[in-house]
């Protein structure tokens, strides 16, 4: 371990890098040889210096369009004026009315993310979280959570409301940006400006929390419903398959010539048709004949199946 109390090395450079001890391993580089002197002198000598240039968004766009790459330019979340139109999210129809709409955005470049609607979700999540930093999460949420088939059907409404939420947060950001972040530009040595007001940031956080729990609750609700239906269907299936098994067994036994004494008797219905299955609470259970609780009633209808 180096001596931490090493004296200040003002004006000197860092220790030599490991790679500076070895030569460049592959052939000549397509770069001009480095100039000597200080960076500011070099840039000024090249005539490209523009000290203190401040680029607005519109300015940057016009410049950028000179170097078209033939690749669709993603329209920026903060430039789309149609956010309050939540229906735009579901089907992706509203993209066309954005300010910097670029064809191919919805289908071409991002098409492989899955359904347009689900990527829309991710994209708006994007704008909510200050744009690009979440480039990754665009795919994350868009593809993973909402892109799946299961929830797309039942969550049609959910997507809409999600978009609405994104809009709300986007507006919140617009509010939250300049008033806090700005400092007096004429006093660059001042301490950092005061943080955003506690209540403002607290309300933003609360909004996020509430929305989050809203979504979680909806997920839980849908899951509970699905589970319930699945379970009741399963129980019904068991019920019916048990009955089928009994019938088949009786049939096989009959073929084998073994007469079985059924546990329960299915007397014919009142009009001679076979009675309904003994299905508790079945549709005909009120008027259908009841099963005898024991053998005591076996002979009542005169057609004893046994013996």
């Amino acid at each position: 371990m180096e001596n931490p109390n090493r004296p200040q090395q003002s004006g000197t450079s860092a220790p030599p890098k490991p790679w500076e001890r070895s030569g460049s391993s592959s052939g000549p580089a397509p770069f001009k040889p480095p100039s000597s002197g200080s960076t500011s002198d070099i840039v000024e000598a090249s005539g490209t210096a523009r000290p203190g240039e401040i680029v607005t968004t519109a300015d940057a766009n016009t410049v950028a369009n000179r170097n078209a790459l033939g690749r669709p330019l993603p329209s920026r979340p903060w430039e789309q004026q149609t956010y309050n139109n939540t229906t735009a999210l579901g089907g992706g129809v509203g993209y066309g009315s954005g300010l910097n709409y670029n064809s191919g955005y919805g289908s071409g470049t991002y098409g492989s993310y899955g359904a347009g609607g689900s990527y829309g979700g991710g994209m708006y999540g994007n704008s909510m979280y200050r744009g690009g930093m979440y480039g990754g999460t665009g795919s994350l949420y868009g593809g993973g959570m909402y892109g799946g088939g299961m929830y797309n059907s039942s969550f049609g409404g959910g997507m809409g409301s999600y978009g609405g939420m994104g809009m709300g947060m986007g507006m919140g950001m617009g509010m939250g940006g300049p008033p806090y972040g700005d400092q007096d530009p004429n006093n660059p040595f001042a301490a950092p400006s005061s943080p955003p007001g506690f209540w403002v940031s607290f309300m933003h956080v609360m909004q996020g929390v509430v929305t989050f729990f809203g979504r979680v609750a909806m997920l839980i609700d849908q899951n509970t419903q699905a589970f319930h239906m699945f379970m009741s269907a399963l129980l019904q299936l068991f019920d019916r398959s048990g009955m089928l098994y009994g019938e088949l067994a009786r049939f096989v036994f009959r073929l084998l010539g073994i007469r079985t004494k059924p546990q329960k008797v299915q007397p014919p219905g009142p009009n001679g048709l076979p009675g309904p299955h003994n299905f508790p609470g079945g549709p005909n259970s009120l008027e259908g004949p009841k099963v005898a609780p024991s053998g005591a009633w076996d002979g009542v209808w005169g057609n004893e199946p046994s013996n």
Binding site: S38, T39, S40, V43, E44, T48, A49, R50, P51, G52, E53, V55, T56, T57, D59, A60, N61, V63, A64, N65, R66, N67, L69, L73, P74, R76, R130, G131, G132, G135, P188
Partner: peptide, 27 residues
């Protein structure tokens, strides 16, 4: 995220140069 890269030197209070060609945020 304003689509630009800026070159600064340690001795100057303003940027020396701004590189603006990217059409979207520079990460």
């Amino acid at each position: 995220w304003d689509d630009t890269v800026k070159l600064w030197t340690i001795d100057r209070p303003t940027s020396v140069r701004t590189f603006k060609e990217h059409a979207y945020c520079v990460y």
